[in-house]
Nucleic acid binder design. Structure first.
Lengths: 360, 360
DNA sequence: GTGAAAGCGCTAACAA
DNA sequence: TTGTTAGCGCTTTCAC
């Protein structure tokens, strides 16, 4: 394996000069050229391991995500990738499957490999611990989910707002028994989307034209916690549909659960918008699955790009106060939330229950 | 940052002894215990970079795949992960988007980082070049796709067999104008699945009950090359459906293109099995998209697990001849290929054209 | 079984 | 601008 010394020897210069040529130090054009030629002839490939040891930091950046099968995270990963592409850092992608042990293992590796920084979508809000990285001076940026208490830069989505907008939309379209299937307790996204749902319901009850007595209590029965996966969404929806007074609309707090919901809805012989269905986050191949699915659009790619930007800033060492960037979601209205009576009957009698509304 | 020397000092032993404790050398129990306690107290985390430099090889294994958005490859990645999990090696996942430049960049990084080995699903059969790795002694295993001419271990699927079985199945079910949408020219999977398609058609024409004149030529017009993506499959299918004599069945040579095909079929107002649709590789959430999609099942997870196994063998240095492992696919028959006249009419008149058949 | 010492390949401080 | 030198933190002879 040829080293920088071999190249130096071949070019008749010192190793330091070769290093300078490689890393943009000041070297006279003539010598630089000689070095480059020698390097090319010898097929020299700099040893990044040695470089990392010397610099006490590698040129690897870790990206830790909970579900590589979720298109949301793959889009996010692409965003990180593309941002890193223009730098000398390389991204290594780590999938935890939402498993805290796997996550811990990857965080340990990040330390052991002296990675330059880590972007993490935490498996758990309270139990993901990045303090070991921080105490060793490895910059950490949280994406999508914010670990509780950790003082890290973060790039988040306006989950609560998005959840509220989604729920308000369903209510505005005339649905009255609106259910919410949210994610596991202890993830910030699940909690905040649910909080948005609750807030929108409350506001509706407060402002609205006097709801029937007991309605508020009833609504509480329409909340389910699932696992952010297709199967969980399916089970939760089947459960909801088995209720004596089943919901007439559902807000699925992530994309995969929305797929499960649609599945359950179809199995029950129902067809949106007879029952309202709304997803938080784009559903892959949604057009085929369910044309016109109403969706809270989440800027997953930008989430990744922005997180990478913050991380690279930190790695560069720019002294900065802690930053939290919140990216805005936007409601894309489709046909699956047209209203409970928006079928044939509605089309014949004209619009009756779609009040003007602000799609945020 | 605490080092092995700090630990040695605290435990009153030499750095060499600490290293032995960490890596399973022979040390008396008493001293080993002292070392371990000191390490824990100091929060010592071994520096893998230094270790890699000294060992002239890192404990990272690269996995290079062309499409992180394709569930086939994410399943494969999980297989690799799980196999590596039980060793001291960590997997770094690299997504090339089928782009040769990106792929080259990742291969360069694998060299520069002195990775212990690389598993690669090549972006191109002829233009992906892993010789630089090999000449530097980095073991390479090809998975799913075999780079042409490269002498590497490989784990493949019986693509040609699978393609033939798929096509034979369609013919056996009574479809006569069977189209094939395959992948980009220059990927082994696309070429071999197409070859299987051709072989099955030929065998049918040879053995079968004399096809109408010109049939063989006609069939040639039913082949399309697309990009292994949803959009490509959609466009190709739309194109086929616009033919004056359009196909009555289609074999999509990968899962994502099958999604696009189903989309185009639906847009054309058709409904399988009126038109036969068959996918090579599982379609994500297929149950929802199209219940009962006939599929050539590909053992993606096992592909990854097996590839990791071969790679780890090589890394261990076991002297071995070059190995190619071919995993078998299996046809899972669903409703989308029940036969061109298998709708209402058929159900009433009893089975007419489903000869006995071997689902491999 | 244990320690001293050398060295993996690079970068950076310093001196020239 | 250039070369000399030291050292990043570990593993591994080799001698004891």
């Amino acid at each position: 394996m040829t080293t920088i010394n071999d190249v130096a020897h071949a070019a008749g210069v010192s190793p330091a000069t070769v290093s300078r040529v490689l890393n943009g130090g000041r070297v006279t054009a003539e010598r630089a050229e000689r070095v480059r030629r020698a390097a090319a002839e010898l097929g020299f490939a700099p040893n990044r391991v040695a470089r990392s040891l010397r610099m006490r930091r590698s040129s690897l950046v870790g990206l830790i995500i909970p579900d590589i099968g979720n298109p949301f995270f793959t889009a996010l990963a692409r965003g990180v990738e593309d941002a890193a592409q223009r730098t000398s850092f390389s991204v290594v992608l780590c999938n935890t499957d939402g498993n805290l042990d796997k996550e811990r293992r990857y965080l340990d590796i990040a330390i052991a490999e002296r990675m330059a920084g880590v972007i993490v979508a935490a498996a758990s809000r309270s139990r993901t611990d990045v303090s070991a990285l921080q105490s060793r001076g490895i910059p950490v940026v949280a994406v999508d989910r914010r670990p509780r208490g950790a003082s890290v830069d973060a790039v988040l989505v306006d989950d609560e707002e998005g959840g509220a907008a989604a729920t308000a939309h369903l209510l505005a379209r005339g649905y009255r028994r609106v259910a919410c299937i949210t994610g596991p307790q202890g993830t910030s996204t699940a909690e905040e989307r649910l909080a948005g749902y609750r807030r929108a319901l409350q506001e509706f009850l407060d402002d609205g034209p006097g709801a029937p007595a007991g309605e508020a209590d009833l609504l509480r029965d329409y909340i389910r916690h699932a696992d952010f996966k297709v199967e969980g969404g399916h089970a939760a929806m089947a459960d909801l549909l088995a209720l004596p007074r089943r919901p007439d609309a559902v807000f699925a707090a992530n994309n995969l659960m929305a797929v499960g919901v649609l599945q359950a809805v179809r199995e029950a012989g129902l067809e949106p918008p007879e029952i309202g269905v709304l997803s938080f986050g784009e559903v892959p191949w949604a057009a085929l699955v369910q044309p016109g699915l109403t969706t809270v659009q989440v800027p997953s790619y930008d989430l990744g790009r922005t997180a990478a930007g913050l991380l690279l800033d930190r790695i560069a060492g720019t002294e900065q106060p802690l930053r939290t960037v919140v990216l805005r979601s936007s409601l894309q209205i489709g046909r699956t939330t047209a209203g409970p009576r928006s079928g044939m009957a509605r089309r014949m009698s004209g619009k009756q229950q779609t009040p003007a509304e602000d799609p945020r």
